[in-house]
Design a binder for these strands. Structure first.
Length: 514
RNA sequence: GCUCGGGUAGCUCAGCUGGUAGAGCAGCGGACUUUUAAUCCGUUGGUCCUGGGUUCGAGUCCCAGCCCGAGUACCA
């Protein structure tokens, strides 16, 4: 029996280090001291190295001990903080006896320490802090993965992202780049007069996209709620209210399969601009993506696998029917009869019942993956775009576009439908489709949204950018899980003492619809 | 959901036609005051994902299940 509670994966390596922490306490050293001193950063120290060596000023660093190389009466290690790392040299005849004892008896790789000392250059030329003082900042009782082969097991990397971030510096850089891309887009939007807003993620009626939702329940109100599949209908209510330059960067939730391009919760930048149309919005997409690339990469060129692209280049625009015509080797349009399309395509799945569906199907099957370089596809079937306005003079064509990069849909935008009567009809059609068994059609008509349109909504264009997929492209990450810090995984296997009370089960079951 | 691949020490991985479970690194003990995968000597460490089965004997073969990945399906 051990005197402390231990986790199920406790082992003797951890035991040894817990004992060490106890021994430190017995020696009068608190392994988890209350005081923390953020002094210099590694990056600053390296940047100011020449000045610091000249002046002999003492630097002060807080960070994690990496790669200890120890000798009898001296040692080197690297001290890593959020900005980088600096080598530290500790030598018996320089530091106090207590400090040397701390190193010799208690210090392990992975510990967080505070080091102060002067900067010098070793004979191999590396800038190094000669420790005058070494103090423990926080003891680590689990050892880090091996330095040479790293931490590769994908499942462990996702489940224990904290270890992944320490062990694989490229991973941390990916998330920094993602963050910089988002910051750059925010700056660009703010500078362009857009206002950031937050709209409900828990919605009584979900809409704005075609997807199955997650369902939850509010106890006090005894109310069924859906996690939003899109913020669109709320953002456009704001347009009615006169806030007609708005954006939101936040999570959407779609109860669908998981793949290298799909995570059940994902981040979307959605924005609306009064007085714009889809054409204007395409130009804006080019601008904001260039800003995102600049932020993430410091330049406009990006590499994704074998693909090289330059976000400074104008993005070509292709009509969907033209892309499909090329794929089929014959001119087709929205008014091409279904029979003719079936003939040209060879085979079409049973659920394809209209020319619109046939063209979209062929596009998805044969065209999407060929769109490697950034490309706008525009003019979508109106029937599959219930929130979009028609192209002038062509009521069957939606003034809508999607941006493809590396075969992935990265952005989607359109001129917003603001005719309340038409919108109501479209909603009713959706409800009919739902009744007919289309699980992705919106179940309930959002009457209040139609009411809002009845007050008059400024002509506007809207845009959604899949932030995770954009981050994939900018960071050359082949899976969406590489750009989401904590991607959804099945819960790790529970221990044998685990039992599930019925109340917990009820809650869990509320989220699944089959 | 389906197909394929994977799960062995803290980490990275070997383990053939079934025959007492291995390496490197880490850890632990020792030597070592400019190393950077430090070096040298010694050494501990295993629910081989789980549960059944076949067999004298299973990490290995069979069945069922769990988890991860890739592909596919789904995904205005």
């Amino acid at each position: 029996m051990t005197p402390f509670p231990f986790l199920p994966d406790h082992n003797d390596l951890i035991e040894t280090r817990y004992r060490k922490a106890e021994a430190m306490r017995e020696a009068g050293i608190e392994p988890y001291p209350a005081k923390a001193e953020a002094g210099d950063t590694a990056a600053e120290v390296l940047a100011r190295a020449e000045v610091l060596m000249e002046s002999g000023d003492v630097v002060s660093l807080l960070g994690r001990v990496m790669g200890v190389r120890s000798f009898g009466k001296a040692a080197f290690f690297h001290l890593r903080d959020r900005t980088g790392q600096v080598q530290v040299y500790i030598k018996k005849n320089i530091v106090t006896e207590e400090c040397f004892r701390l190193y010799k008896e208690f210090l392990d790789g992975g510990d967080l320490v505070h080091v102060t000392g002067r900067l010098f250059r070793t004979k191999t030329g590396e800038l190094t802090v000669e420790a005058a003082e070494l103090r423990i900042a926080a003891k680590a009782v689990r050892q880090l993965p091996e330095k040479w082969h790293g931490f590769r097991d994908v499942e462990s990397r996702y489940r224990q992202r904290y270890v992944d971030l320490i062990a694989n510096p490229a991973v941390a850089e990916t998330f920094r780049a993602r963050s910089r891309a988002i910051s750059a887009m925010r700056r660009f939007l703010d500078a362009g007069g857009f206002m950031e807003v937050e709209t409900p993620m828990m919605q009584a009626i979900y809409g704005g996209a075609a997807a199955r939702p997650f369902v939850t329940h509010h106890n006090a109100l005894d109310m069924r709620l859906y996690l939003r599949i899109a913020p669109e209908l709320f953002l456009k209510r704001l347009l009615v209210g006169g806030l007609d330059r708005v954006y939101e960067i936040n999570r959407n939730f779609r109860n669908e399969g998981i793949s290298t391009q799909h995570n059940p919760e994902f981040t979307m930048l959605e924005l609306y601009a009064g007085g714009w149309n889809a054409d204007r919005m395409m130009g804006f997409v080019e601008d904001i993506l260039r800003e995102a690339a600049m932020g993430a990469l410091g330049g406009t060129r990006a590499v994704f696998g074998d693909l090289e692209m330059d976000f400074a280049d104008p993005v070509p625009r292709v009509r969907m029917v033209d892309a499909v015509s090329e794929a089929l080797g014959a001119e087709v349009d929205w008014d091409t009869p279904l029979e003719r399309l079936r003939e040209l395509a060879g085979e079409l799945p049973e659920e394809v019942r209209t020319p619109d569906e046939a063209i979209v199907h062929v596009f998805e099957e044969r065209c999407e993956e060929k769109l490697q370089q950034p490309t706008f596809v525009h003019d979508f079937p109106k029937s599959l775009s219930p929130l979009a306005k028609s192209v002038e003079g062509r009521p069957e064509v939606a003034d809508r576009f999607e941006l493809y990069i590396a075969g992935m849909e990265i952005a989607n935008g359109y001129s917003e439908l603001n005719d309340p009567r038409e919108q109501y009809e479209r909603f009713l059609e959706q409800a009919e489709r739902r009744k007919a068994g289309d699980e992705e059609a919106t179940a309930e008509v959002d009457e209040d949204y139609v009411r809002a349109l009845e007050y008059g909504m400024v002509p506007a264009a809207g845009l959604g950018i899949g932030v995770d997929r954009l981050a994939m492209v900018l960071t050359n990450s082949p899976s969406i899980r590489d750009v989401i810090l904590f991607p959804l995984l099945r819960t790790a296997k529970r221990e044998e003492h685990a039992d599930s009370p019925s109340s917990v089960e009820e809650t869990a079951n509320g989220g699944s619809t089959g």
